[in-house]
């Protein structure tokens, strides 16, 4: 499957990916409305980590044998063994944060308002993940997971 690859050297810390992620997962899908009316309920599923000039957007890498799926006690996180897709069902999530603890990438976000986990879904409803489509510097790209892991 294709996952999002972050090319750190071109990440310039504008954090438009975070903003676009929140808008894409808002109910209004309109940036101004989302930030005015829904801000409290929005959690970005991508986070730009920074160390000096180096910045790096982090989101779910859809690991093989995803630890989050193993750790999830309610079955809210499941992995399709055929495709590797890691799905998260907020209705089953109880907000125990075990997935947050075990995620090797720090990609699981806590949706504090809803008291559930929030993770990247590759914007399945869109043509392209909003963070990838909106990155002004090509620092986020879609790539086959095998290629990313071998790179």
């Amino acid at each position: 499957m294709k996952i999002i690859q972050a090319i750190a050297q071109y990440c310039m810390n504008c954090r438009l990916c975070e903003i676009n992620c929140m808008v894409a997962h808002s109910s209004s899908r309109d940036i101004i409305t989302a930030f005015r009316a829904e801000r409290e309920r929005l959690t970005s599923r991508v986070t730009v980590e920074q160390s000096g000039p180096r910045t790096f957007p982090v989101q779910c890498r859809f690991c093989q044998d995803a630890p989050c799926a193993v750790a999830c006690m309610t079955g809210a996180i499941t992995q399709d063994p055929a495709t590797g897709w890691v799905a998260h069902d907020p209705d089953k999530c109880v907000g125990c944060w075990m997935c947050v603890m075990v995620c090797p990438n720090g990609a699981m976000a806590r949706d504090v308002g809803g008291h559930v986990t929030s993770k990247c879904d590759l914007c399945a409803a869109l043509d392209q993940p909003a963070c990838v489509a909106g990155c002004p510097n090509g620092a986020l790209v879609l790539a086959e997971r095998d290629e990313v892991e071998n790179a």
């Binding site: 090319i7 990440c11 000039p53 510097n137 090509g138 620092a139």
Partner: peptide
């Protein structure tokens, strides 16, 4: 040559 700024230009683009 500022490392905070040079990364803003992706040579592929």
């Amino acid at each position: 040559q500022d490392p905070y700024l040079t990364r803003r230009l992706n040579p592929e683009i």
